[in-house]
Design a protein around this nucleic acid. Structure first.
Lengths: 244, 244
DNA sequence: CGCAAGGTTGAATGATCTCAACGTTTGTGG
DNA sequence: CCACAAACGTTGAGATCATTCAACCTTGCG
C-alpha cells in the first residue's frame, strides 16, 4: 500500500518535537496540530512531489532522508536540498515548487494540508517564528553549499560531504559511542549533491580510503580513521578559534 | 562622511514600500517603523558587515546593489547573495553572519536595530509573514543558483546572468522603452557570482558579442540584439508552456 | 543462474584555470 | 590639461582537473 496515511499520532511522543516547525508550540497549540496532522510513508526512491505539482500539503520529515532536485532540459540534474528528520518540506504562500522531492530512503512525513497550515502561520506566532528560523537555517546551508559548488575541488567536495555526515550522525548519538557510520546517499546521489559525476565521486572516495583517512566496511558503511585530516581536506576553516 | 545616518524619512514616500519587509503593514504599523528606522549610505566598495561582526542592525536595500560573499582560508571567494532594492539584509534570531556584506555600488539602506526588530517579528504578524515570504523567495533564488553553479557551463552561466539582468531591469520600467542596459557588477564580481575566473567571464562575454547576441556601448552598458538566442544560451527551459 | 543496477577503474578528451603580457579607463596631483 | 599610477579588462599559451566513454567488477534478486 503506497503512501500509507495514518492519523492520531501523539505529538508528545514525537522524536523531532524539539527541532521541527512546532518546537516552540505550547500544549494547546500542539493539541491543535495533533488534530490536523497526518502521517504519510514513502519507500526509498518514491516521489513525494513532482516539479510543477500542486502542493496540496506541507510536511516535516520524521524519519529518513528526502532530496530536492532540479533538472535541466537535457537531463542534467543538481540536488538543491537534503532534508533530514525535523526539516520542513513546502513553500508557505506558494502552491507550486520548481523541483522534485524524492524519498532517498524510506521516509515518514508529518503532513498538514496547505491552506490550513498557511492559516496557522498567520494565527500562531510560535509557528511563524519557528518557520523563519528554519528558513534562515536552510538559507545558511544553501550558502555553504554554493561555496562548495562554485569553488571547491572534487576532493574538497567529497571531504566536506563525508565530514557533514560524520558530524550529523555523531551529533544524534548521546551515548558517546562511535558506531560505524553510514553514507545516507548512493554514489549517484552524492554526485548529484556535489555537482560531480559518479566516476569522480568513486575516485575521490577511493582516494580518502587509500590515504588512510577512511575505512569502508561495505559500499555504504565506513569508519573515520583520521578525523583531523578529513577536516583539513574539506578546505574549510572549521576549528577557527578552538583552543584545545 | 562615511556611513551618513539620517532619520525621519517618510515611509509613505518609500520607493520599495510595496516589496520590502514592511509591505504588508498598515498605517499604524508604518508609523511605528518610521520612528525606529534610520537610513545609512555606503559608497561603492565599502563594507556593510564583515564576517563575524556583531549584527547590530538589520536593513532593507533602498537603492543600489549589495553582495554577500564567502571566503575560504586560501582566498577563494564565492558570492552567495546579490541584494537589490527591497531585498533584506540580516538574520532574524542570530547575532552573527558567516559572510561579508559589501556595497557593490553606492547603496542606501533602511536600518532597524536588531533587538527591537526581533521584537517586531514577534509582535507584528504582518512583518513576520512578509519575512517568511522574503526568505522563501531567497531560498528559491539560491536553488536556481545552485543548479547554475553545479551544472551549467561557463557560457550558460554568463547567459543566465545577463538574461537575469535584462529581465530585472526591463521589469522595472513601465514605459515600455528599451533603454541601454547596464551590468550591475564588475567582471570580477560577475566571476565571483558565477564561480568562474575573470578571464573566463571576459572570454564568454566576448563570445556573446561575436555571436551577435549582445552589443556593447562600453564595458558596462549594452543592448540585446537577439533575446531569443540569449535565452536559449542559458540552458533553461524558460518559455515552457508559453503559446504565442 | 543470469540479469540489472550500482560501483569501480582506465585512457583520452576538453573545458576552465593559471600565468603572463598587454590594453583601457579612471582618478589624482602637478 | 597632461602625466602617471592603479584598477579593471582582454588576450594568448600551456597546464590541469574533471568529464566522457568504455570496459569490467560486485551485489542482490527473480
Amino acid at each position: 500500500m503506497k503512501n500509507n496515511v495514518i492519523s492520531g499520532v501523539k505529538c508528545t511522543d514525537c522524536p523531532i518535537q524539539h527541532r521541527a516547525v512546532c518546537s516552540r508550540c505550547d500544549h494547546a497549540e500542539l493539541m491543535l496540530l495533533e488534530s490536523m496532522k497526518k502521517y504519510r510513508s514513502f519507500k526509498a526512491g518514491e516521489a513525494i512531489f513532482w516539479r510543477g505539482d500542486d502542493l496540496t500539503y506541507v510536511a516535516s520529515v520524521i524519519e529518513g532522508v528526502a532530496t530536492l532536485e532540479k533538472t535541466m532540459e537535457d537531463g542534467r540534474t543538481q540536488m538543491v536540498g537534503l532534508l533530514l528528520p525535523s526539516d520542513f518540506i513546502g513553500h508557505p504562500g506558494r502552491t507550486r515548487i520548481d523541483f522534485d522531492v524524492t524519498a532517498a530512503s524510506d521516509v515518514v512525513l508529518c503532513c498538514f494540508d496547505r491552506a490550513p497550515f498557511d492559516q496557522l502561520l498567520k494565527d500562531v506566532p510560535h509557528i511563524s517564528q519557528r518557520m523563519i528560523e528554519l528558513a534562515m537555517d536552510e538559507l545558511d546551508a544553501a550558502r555553504d553549499w554554493m561555496l562548495l559548488l562554485g569553488r571547491k575541488t572534487a576532493g574538497e567536495k567529497i571531504a566536506t560531504f563525508v565530514e557533514m555526515v560524520v558530524r550529523r550522525q555523531h551529533f544524534d548519538r548521546k551515548d558517546g559511542m562511535r558506531p560505524d557510520l553510514v553514507l545516507p546517499l548512493s554514489r549517484g546521489d552524492i554526485a548529484n549533491y556535489l555537482g560531480l559525476t559518479v566516476e569522480t565521486v568513486s575516485r575521490q572516495i577511493g582516494k580518502l580510503k587509500s590515504d588512510g583517512i577512511l575505512e569502508f566496511i561495505d559500499k555504504r558503511r565506513f569508519r573515520v580513521i583520521d578525523l583531523e585530516r578529513l577536516q583539513q581536506a574539506t578546505g574549510d576553516d572549521d576549528d577557527g578559534g578552538v583552543i584545545v
